[in-house]
Design a protein around this nucleic acid. Sequence first.
DNA 1: TTGTAGGCGTTATCAT
DNA 2: ATGATAACGCCTACAA
Lengths: 341, 341
Amino acid sequence: MEKQATIIDIARTLNISTSTVSRALRNTFDVKAETREAVMALAEKLNYQPNRLAISLLKRQTHTIGVIIPNLDFVLSTMVKGIDEVALEAGYTVMVCQSNESFGRELVNTKRLLDSLVDGIIVSVSSETKVFEHIKKIKDRNIPLVVFDRVNKEIVAPHVQLDNVEGGVLATEHLLEQGYQKIAILAGPQNLDISNKRMEGYLNTLKKHGLRIKKDFIIHCDFNQDYAYEATKELLTMKNRPDAIFTISDRMAIGASLAIKEKGLRMPTDIGLVGFNNEPITKLVTPNISSVEQPAFEMGKITAKLFIEMMNSKKDMNNEEIILKPKLFIRESSLRFTKKV
Amino acid sequence: MEKQATIIDIARTLNISTSTVSRALRNTFDVKAETREAVMALAEKLNYQPNRLAISLLKRQTHTIGVIIPNLDFVLSTMVKGIDEVALEAGYTVMVCQSNESFGRELVNTKRLLDSLVDGIIVSVSSETKVFEHIKKIKDRNIPLVVFDRVNKEIVAPHVQLDNVEGGVLATEHLLEQGYQKIAILAGPQNLDISNKRMEGYLNTLKKHGLRIKKDFIIHCDFNQDYAYEATKELLTMKNRPDAIFTISDRMAIGASLAIKEKGLRMPTDIGLVGFNNEPITKLVTPNISSVEQPAFEMGKITAKLFIEMMNSKKDMNNEEIILKPKLFIRESSLRFTKKV
DNA sequence: TTGTAGGCGTTATCAT
DNA sequence: ATGATAACGCCTACAA
């Protein structure tokens, strides 16, 4: 309705100076009790709300954190929820920007957030992102930065991430244990650290067991159900087809699963399948899909905590690296034998 | 690194006044070409970025839109994507707050956004929200408001929503057409407009066909897979159990589907099922679940467009009401007979 | 305990 | 074509 009341209004009405009002409002010690009460009462009555812009301009901080993420899928929106929770509690407002897995959008978003004078930025890079000049710009402006989930070692900043290698190991060891010998992997985009790490776990495990690594069994494709579907169809037409597939996301696992069923193969008998993320959907499709879980909510919270610690301590934490452990959930798609204890 | 360059820095270096710099930067007509070039060059060199806080403080607008939503599920995150797209193009930044279906959180978020001096707010209420004082506060502050998706007629503001009655009709007509006679409904929370409207469509259709409405077949429960599962189990133990279930969300449909399968009943033979939202998961479970689609992305875009129109025109649009049409996708869970043309 | 004055970065108005 | 000044709303030395 009418313009918001300001400190000046209160001062004028009470015939005192704005500084006194300001002090009273903030409960400074050096203000007479009755003055303070009068100010408080009037402030209440006028529904006074401090103008954050004015304060931000003065203090040079907005109490806003920018978050850049590639999309709002199950895992990331869970992470955002975690970030939001901690940030809110610490008095920060979160500004979420989706890049839609587009490098261009990521640039725009970075610029937007920088323009908005956020106090800091938390980022998980898009699958298209191969260069990091825009991220450097954040550092150049001396704006606190934390990288999470989709990290990249070229980025000089504290990292919070999953032990993706371990995730790859868990999945692969499990498949081997179940007697699968020819394990293919649908890895994500090549430039993505999470792809490479998960694949590293896969490769390490094969090597450890003295198994030959077949180039044909390693397929890079987007985090996308359709691509995974096509890639799997391809895999299954090979003369010497894989007897198990590890996909580094559940959406890809779904695509793979569709292709497998279409081909008339049964899981886990004819072929094993393990996904990644442990999304709810893995429990709903038939057969259920085994999947490597990452503690997304926890990861969001930890990221925000680290971020806030960095804001407060002002110390260099660029070498900080928090690594969370994944956990394998075994379901029908890969369980041939009841697990030996 | 160092402090951001300001107009004052440029002015001092060039030995001209800040007003001239300001004008040059904004391409006003009344500045000498060479002055402007000098300013531009220096601005470029210093990587000058206007301080949005200062401008916002002066102009009393932040170019930020607050969006309050109950969660980030498939439908809502798609809508947010639509809002974001249009808003970005119009020069607005979007601040998304999730209430987690909690009324308390919704209050906090509203306050946060108001404090952040957003230029306007777009809201979809939580399932707990029964009173709308906080929404009125937005109006009292004279801040443009648009309500979308989960609307409520108590809120005086332009509405963008689905024709939820029609959605209920589509689902129910289809089930009847497939020969189901005893149709139950898992409706959502009672205070939610979308629940009531979808149920209204269901009721209207039954009446239209002269069918008796059984109270026992109308179940209100949260938008939640587990509740739906329990409710369905309950329904199926009735002596005269329903032969079809219409759930007003897909997550509920999933829950129902699990209960149905557990009971050893087959879809669509023994029992029919139709969900709502047309989430990807409906195509992935077995059997596929029929579902009523709402054009979520479109709805987000339209909401943002309406919002921006309102911002620009400054006219009263409180009676504006945009209603989008749903579309039924028929799948295995309810298709007994091939559809007659 | 309170007031004065200057400043945060920018724009708009009025002079020059 | 350019400059001086006030203003947006608040805070903080410093002075009283």
